[in-house]
């Protein structure tokens, strides 16, 4: 057994496999399928200060090797999370992180303040990259100025580990990553979904009620890898890579590109136990290639 532990700022992860926000519910939905505590950590659903109904149905379109979604951050709000959901999550013996979102800087701050009070939440992932909300969301993540404003504002109220989640819907992700690092991010995670669209030729209508949505799944992996590699060159904080990871080999590719940990998203829908298989597969890879520990391969792309 190789040493799979890894660190993201102050977070000690027993293995580098986390779950991506919006694809793992609150973990509880997976209790029938696996022991959530075996994971390196989980990132629960996008949470906002006020409850949100999300967008209209249809919210999903299957595409070649992936899917588009336009859920739009449906959640019952940070206070409901704190009182009704959080107590159920303290049973997990792993890192639980909350994905924090908002329409204004004030909303991000208010949400982070509530999460800051919850002892068992190991950190937040600041979502400045959701493509499915009209106000805020991704628009915070597409310019250096707005990244600085929101990240430094939340930094002032949130003391534990703050990961900032970047959007791929930008021209130069390295530059935006530097802005987030400079503004106080302890770590960066990437990528969120890519803005896309699906059309039904028979009805001549868009498939999604919102017309456009976010693309996830193996279709986006090459873009995600390229962006992790670019960001790894641009910043010094640890990276959490994601985008289309379906198996251990995919995960290894992200470590080689420079990620210290990874998140599994859409793959959980197809096989809810996939994360455990990925952990085993990473171990097998390290043993087979005679590496004693995961850190031996992080950023070790042979050029």
């Amino acid at each position: 057994m190789a040493d799979l532990s890894t660190t993201i700022h102050k977070l000690e992860l027993k293995n580098p496999v986390l779950t991506a926000s919006g694809t793992f519910g609150y973990g509880l939905e997976y209790d029938d399928f696996l022991d959530v505590s075996l994971l390196g950590g989980i990132v629960v659903k996008g949470t906002t200060i006020h409850p949100r109904q999300g967008n209209a149905y249809p919210r999903m379109a299957e595409t070649a090797s992936g899917m588009l979604n336009s859920v739009g951050l449906q959640n019952r709000g940070a206070r409901y999370f704190a009182t009704d959901i959080y107590p159920k999550l303290t049973k997990y013996n792993t890192n639980v992180l909350v994905n924090v979102s908002g329409s204004t800087i004030e909303e991000y701050i208010a949400c982070a303040e509530i999460i800051n009070e919850l002892d068992h939440i190991a950190g937040i992932e600041l979502n400045i990259s959701c493509p499915n909300v009209k106000e805020g969301g991704m628009s915070f993540g597409t310019s250096c100025g707005s990244i600085e404003n929101v990240v430094s504002a939340v930094r002032k109220v949130y003391q534990k580990t703050m990961i900032v989640k970047l959007t791929p819907n930008v021209t130069d992700i390295g530059e935006l990553a530097r802005a987030a690092e400079y503004s106080g991010a302890d770590s960066l995670s990437l990528i969120n979904t890519l803005l896309g669209m699906a059309i039904n030729a028979e009805t001549r209508k868009p498939v999604l009620a919102t017309i456009t949505g976010g693309l996830s799944g193996p279709a986006i992996k090459p873009i995600a890898l390229r962006m992790v590699w670019e960001v790894a060159k641009a910043v010094n904080v640890p990276l959490v890579g994601m985008g289309g990871i379906m198996n251990a080999t995919d995960a290894i590719e992200f470590f080689l590109a420079g990620a210290s940990a990874i998140q599994v998203g859409t793959a959980n829908y197809i096989d809810p136990t996939i994360t455990l298989k990925i952990i085993d597969g990473i171990d097998s890879y390290l043993n087979y290639h005679k590496f004693n520990k995961l850190s031996d391969i992080i950023g070790c792309l042979q050029l």
Partner: peptide
């Protein structure tokens, strides 16, 4: 029979409008 991605309540893609919201 709404279209589904996960089938067990985590993706929130299959919602219908009810008197108590989605």
């Amino acid at each position: 029979e709404n279209t589904m991605a996960c089938g067990f309540g985590v993706c929130l893609c299959c919602v219908t409008e009810t008197i108590e919201g989605h």
